[in-house]
Design a protein around this nucleic acid. Structure first.
Lengths: 114, 114
DNA sequence: TCAATAAATAAGCATATACTTATATAATGA
DNA sequence: TCATTATATAAGTATATGCTTATTTATTGA
C-alpha cells in the first residue's frame, strides 16, 4: 500500500502535467472527441513537434491512449488511468471546447476515417 | 466577459501552482487548520526560505491569506478566491494531513496564540 | 535598549520545461 | 517504387522553477 505522502506526490505530479494550457486543452478536447495530431496543430496553432511532445507526456503518464488509423494517430482519454476519477473531476470544470472542434469541421479540417 | 480560452489558461495556471508537492501539501494542511511558517518548516522538513517562497506564490495567487499574530504569521485558505470551488474540488481529493499536525502537537511543536 | 525569534527578501545556481529546427520513421496512393 | 503526408524523435536553446546561503525586517520580552 502506498503511503499518504506518496499519494500527495502522485497528485502533485498529475496536477503539474495538467498545469499547462496546451496539455489541459488537449485533455478537454479528447474528453469530448478523439483527435489526431494534425487537428491539435490546427486547434492550438502550434508546430507539430510541439504538439507531439505534449502528447508524449500525456501518453507516458497514461492519461491518453493512441490508436493508429492509417496515416493518422488518434488520441483519446484513457479512462483506465488509476487516478481517472481525479482527472475527470478536473476536466469537468474546464470550459467546453467543442466549439473549437466545430470550427475545424466548418473549415473541413477534421480528419475522418470511415 | 472572459473568453473560454482565457479561462482554460487561468485553470492551467492554477493547476501548475498546485502541481508541486510542497504547495499542494500546504494547501491541504491550511484547508484543515491555520498554520504558521515555522510549522510548515517542521511538517515538510524544508528550510524556512524555501517554505516562505512557496507561501508567497500561493499568496500572490490569492489562494491563501496571511494574518500576523504577534511574532508569527498564520496562513489560511482563502475561500473568497474566484476559483475557490475548483480549488476545493481538488484539495478534497488529496489525502488528509491532519495526522501530520497531530504529530507536531505530540512533539509540542504547534504554535498557539491564545 | 537589545538579544532572540519569526519571517521575508535577495542573489546565485542547477535543473526542468517548452519551445525551435532538422531529421527519421511510417503509411498511402499514383 | 517513389513522392507525399503524418507523426515521432533528436538536439539545441531560452526561460522558468525550486532550491541554496546571506541578509533584512518585524516582533517580543528581559
Amino acid at each position: 500500500m502506498q503511503t499518504a505522502s506518496a499519494d500527495i506526490e502522485t497528485a502533485a505530479n498529475l496536477l503539474k502535467l495538467l498545469g499547462d494550457k496546451t496539455r489541459l486543452g488537449i485533455m478537454k478536447v479528447v474528453s469530448e472527441q478523439e483527435c489526431c495530431v494534425c487537428e491539435f496543430v490546427e486547434l492550438f496553432q502550434m508546430t507539430q513537434p510541439a504538439v507531439s511532445q505534449h502528447l508524449r507526456k500525456l501518453k507516458d503518464a497514461g492519461l491518453v491512449r493512441e490508436t493508429r488509423r492509417g496515416q493518422w494517430i488518434f488520441y483519446s482519454l484513457n479512462s483506465d488511468h488509476p487516478q481517472f476519477g481525479f482527472v475527470r473531476s478536473i476536466i469537468e470544470r474546464i470550459p467546453n471546447q467543442t466549439y473549437k472542434l466545430d470550427e475545424l469541421a466548418a473549415q473541413a479540417k477534421r480528419i475522418c476515417c470511415d
